[in-house]
Nucleic acid binder design. Structure first.
Length: 234
DNA sequence: CCAGACGTTGTT
DNA sequence: GTCTGG
DNA sequence: CCAGACGTTGTT
DNA sequence: GTCTGG
């Protein structure tokens, strides 16, 4: 699954890689979590790619309130085609790393950060919807990240992973007019060789810890961190 | 016709 | 909203 | 994903 | 345990 990720790449570099029109202000996100506003791309009616901030956690149009979104943070690739709640429009959620927690027998879960081998940004296959509050009339755009089975790199850590689209597949995913069969075929684990994974501090567990420290590699075999060590700032 | 459901994750 | 069940 | 909350009564 | 919030 994918319940936490990072996007620290400067917006200029994102524009070069993904080719969207806008020049938004984008603060680095070391520890992005559900219900937060995240950076995404959508295909506009003009056929161009547009940047959008979407609330992470899909809220279907029929929902009574936003609370369902906290649980709709992922959509299984295996069920995207059938489930009514996921008959949504496609988007690309921009990232440069994601976190997975490996369960351990005795010790607490060990978090890992997974990035591209070259450190560059990438896009998760996403779905988005628009929800309007019946009372206030306020509209909120929300999104979810599609997941699939783990590839060889992720299997020792976790059995699911987000769908990471190869750059050449992004256009086919974003174009809702493209064949559903072609889009469905993109929802598979990316090659293990393009990714690397490394353990990070359990400081990432806490959403409020949104600082460069949470993406720093944790030294293997290092003694358990003390609360004092966890509290130090960089 | 109306009423009511509609979803994910995890489980080494 | 859209679909299923009654 | 993890962290943290999770409830009732009353209403002179 | 289950649910919500970030």
């Amino acid at each position: 699954m994918c319940g936490r990720y990072s996007l620290t790449t400067p917006v200029e570099a994102l524009r070069r890689v993904f080719g969207f029109l806008e020049q938004p202000n984008l603060a680095p996100g070391y520890n992005l979590a559900p219900t937060q506003g995240v950076a995404a791309l959508r295909l506009g009616a003009d056929g161009e790619r547009h940047f959008a901030r979407l609330r992470w956690g899909l809220v279907p149009a029929w929902a009574k309130d936003l609370s369902i979104g906290a649980r709709m943070i992922n959509a299984r690739a295996e069920s995207v085609a059938e489930k009514p709640a996921f008959r949504s429009r496609r988007c690309l959620v921009l990232a440069d790393g994601f976190y997975e927690w490996r369960k351990r027998e005795t010790a607490p879960k060990q978090p890992y950060r997974v990035t591209r081998e070259d450190g560059g940004p990438f896009g998760f296959a996403g779905l988005w919807e628009s929800w309007t509050d019946k009372g206030s009339g306020e509209t909120v755009e929300t999104c979810t990240i599609v997941t699939t089975e783990a590839n060889e790199l992720l299997t020792p850590i976790h059995h699911r992973m987000p769908v990471i689209l190869a750059p050449e597949d992004v256009a086919a995913w974003l174009d809702a007019a493209a064949s559903p069969e072609a889009a469905q075929a993109l929802l598979r684990p990316c090659p293990a060789a393009v990714l690397v994974a490394y353990p990070v501090s359990t400081r990432v567990n806490k959403v409020a810890n949104d600082d460069p420290g949470v993406i720093e590699p944790l030294e293997e075999g290092a003694p358990e961190e003390t609360p004092k060590a966890q509290g130090r700032l960089l």
